[in-house]
Amino acid sequence: MTSRFSKGLMLAGVIAILLFLLAPILVLIFSAFDGGNVFRFPPRSYSLRWFEEALTHTEYRSSLWVSTVLGIISTAIAVGLSSLAAFGLVRGKPSYRLGLEVLLLAPLTLPLVVWAIALLSIYAQLGINGTLPGLILAHVTITMPFAARIMIATFDEIDPRLEAAAKSLGASPWHVVRRITLPLAMPGLMSSTAIAFLVSFNDVVVTTLIAGAGWITFPVRTFSRLRTEGIDPTTIAIAAMIVAFTIVVIVLGQRLFQLSRRF
């Protein structure tokens, strides 16, 4: 009896937490289907006009494109570099490991605005302000700490004796990486990629300062429109599509992951 009661209580708690976390997303999705001219909740008439608007709106489309390309390139660079750095730090065990780890986390310790101002003045000297390479470099800088943190933890968890065992079974260093280290690091690589991409995709502060008017990312555009015109229902529709896309990716990933585990 008591256990049944406490189970019920626990279930209620879980539902409450889920509601708390998911409510904003639900609000967003419902509002996206609203037919009105301004953001309302709950929606009063249903229509797909904001989706149409979003898909035809060239400014948003180009911003989404900029965000995606920027996110992919800087994530690839950040995850690649931090994987190499993390592997070196964990396997090489240099005496300066702790120092370097702290340094890799440094960007997290300052408010982003301060960090952005510092980058701005350095990039001005280098003449890469407002250019794509400058923007990519800035995004690599702000995503690295997250990617590196995850990769260091990932490699720390992989027993070096597994690599040694593989070597003794005739695996060259390349085979050890491909058959042992990489597969074991895959979950870590996935999460570090996801986190790095999200950090890059979400950033407003650093991008606003570094990119200037040349490269306007989706959150920067949304934010600036919000300040000039209030909430634009087009943004809501785009956000709803991003949520839908994310869910599809997660479901597919889960399917494939389980399939890959079965073989």
Binding site: R161, A164, S168, L169, G170
Partner: peptide, 14 residues
Amino acid sequence: PWRRNIGLVFQNYA
């Protein structure tokens, strides 16, 4: 090690 053809069994089996 990968050219030695020496089998090794670790304490924790690895």
